[in-house]
Computed example of a mutant assay.
Amino acid sequence: MLHTLLTAFALVLIIEGIGPMLFPNKWRNYLQQMVEQPVNQLRSIGGTLVTIGLVSLFFLI
């Protein structure tokens, strides 16, 4: 179980690192746009992503 969680975490780090590694200028512009968004909109986006992830995980297990 621990091995699976660590593998999943490693994959998340790899996937999240691809953007800044390959497209640093676009990544910086993206982050600047994120900073300018209202907090409630960011919270809604985060909640939606978590919900999609949980539903996907439910169907995969």
Rank of each mutant, 00 (worst) to 15 (best):
T51M: 13
M21N: 08
R43Q: 09
N40C: 13
G46V: 07
L11N: 02
Q37H: 09
T4I: 06
P38C: 06
A10H: 10
I45Y: 03
G53H: 03
L2Y: 14
F23I: 00
V39D: 02
K26A: 08
I61G: 09
I52Y: 00
P20K: 01
V39P: 03
L13D: 05
H3T: 15
A8D: 08
L6H: 09
I14Y: 09
A10I: 14
S56T: 14
L13I: 14
Y30M: 14
Q37S: 10
N29D: 11
V39G: 08
L42E: 03
H3F: 14
P38F: 02
L5S: 04
V35N: 05
T4W: 08
E16M: 06
T51Y: 09
I15D: 11
G47E: 01
L60F: 10
F58N: 03
F58S: 12
N25F: 15
L42H: 01
L11C: 07
G47L: 05
T4K: 00
M34V: 14
M21T: 11
I14R: 00
A10C: 08
I15C: 08
L11P: 01
G53Y: 08
S56E: 13
L13Y: 00
S44C: 07
V50H: 11
T48S: 10
G17A: 07
V55T: 11
I18D: 04
S44Q: 14
E36H: 06
K26C: 12
G47V: 13
Q32S: 14
V39L: 06
G17L: 00
I61D: 11
E36C: 03
A8Y: 07
N40W: 13
M1K: 02
Q33R: 08
I52H: 01
L5A: 11
T48H: 08
R28F: 07
A8N: 06
V50E: 13
G47F: 12
K26M: 12
G17C: 01
Q41V: 13
K26Q: 11
W27V: 02
M34H: 12
T48Q: 11
L13A: 10
N29Y: 06
P38H: 00
